[in-house]
Amino acid sequence: MEHKHKQKMIDLVELQLGKDFNSNIIEEVVQHMEECPDCKIYVDSVQQTIKLYRTTEKEQSIPVEVSDRLFKVLNLQHKDDA
């Protein structure tokens, strides 16, 4: 269980810092976070922030009228007209 928790922390740190950091540095950060609840709370809230934006800022399909105007501006034949 503890190993699972630690791996989760490592994944979290790697997500934040990138995977190409020296593994000793990542270990050190993970160690610090385990001993420092404030840091863990902070990192968790950053993760929540990213998750919230991923949920709200979903990819939006191009509206039909926007697509139509684009093809007109470019003087191209729309696939639906072909």
Partner: peptide, 14 residues
């Protein structure tokens, strides 16, 4: 060109 516009326009708009 139309194919490329059609393929990527939605992603670029987003």
């Amino acid at each position: 060109i139309a194919y490329l516009v059609n393929t990527y326009s939605s992603r670029i708009y987003s």
